[in-house]
Design a protein around this nucleic acid. Sequence first.
DNA 1: CGTTACCTGAAA
DNA 2: TTTCAGGTAACG
Length: 281
Amino acid sequence: MPELPEVETIRRDLKPLVVGRRIAGVEVDPATLPRLAAVPLEELRSALVGREITSLERRGKHLVFELDCGRALVAHLRMTGRMVWRESGAATEPYERGRIVLEGGNDLRWADLRKFGTWRLVTNAQEVAANLGPEPVGPDFTMARFRAALAGRRAPVKAVLLDQRRVSGLGNIYVDEALHRAGIWPGQAAGELGPAATKRLFEACRAVLEEGIANRGTSFSDYVDGQGKEGKHQMYVKVFRRHGKPCYTCGTTIERIVVTGRGTHFCPRCQPERKSRGKRA
DNA sequence: CGTTACCTGAAA
DNA sequence: TTTCAGGTAACG
């Protein structure tokens, strides 16, 4: 569910609340634990309890709780995960699967309807970056790197944008939005994008993510921020889940197709399918 | 490379 | 009843 803007919103909400706080306990629903963490609860506890949280960072869609021992807890919310700040006495969250109890009377509540989310302990925060492409809202995201990520690929450009090893942080919502903003058909072979289209897409990726952050994320069903409140960006999307409705730019009906196994929304007029220029026998 | 599985619903 | 879901690992 959450993509870069949603995870970044949670990070910004929680960081000032958790930094400097010490972990007093860890609770996890036993039925959820095996897929949540690769280690037994006792190991999670021995790594976390008594540690102070020194920072809260984000890498791609991962939330990274840095600890005073140098290690870090890396949380990934996958489709329906939530990480919410609560008073220790507050009611159990819907679909609450675990909590990190902090000294001083607050918890981080972990809720996850579909139980796809993960917690991982790493020996240092740098490990998180392994296998992740550049941050599209950071200085590492250059035209050169973006061009290299697309070069030679026959897969749909949408598939490449979703591949976290090439660019990190984009998911289904913001990919559809970026392709619309750049005027590119989602099924277009990535390696066949011309220089102008590549540049438009490069800029569109950053722009749609920054707008998503400014609007505190997109809440279509499960996402909430660090305080449990919905984002606003669903009011501003141009194509995502707008199939059957008119394009704001040209009035043409937005279509929905399946690309790379994902529901894909686009305007057939603003994002026309182009015939491959590649040679074929 | 594309497709399926993971889990639990909500919506068509 | 069937389809779909904001993600990704594991298939073939």
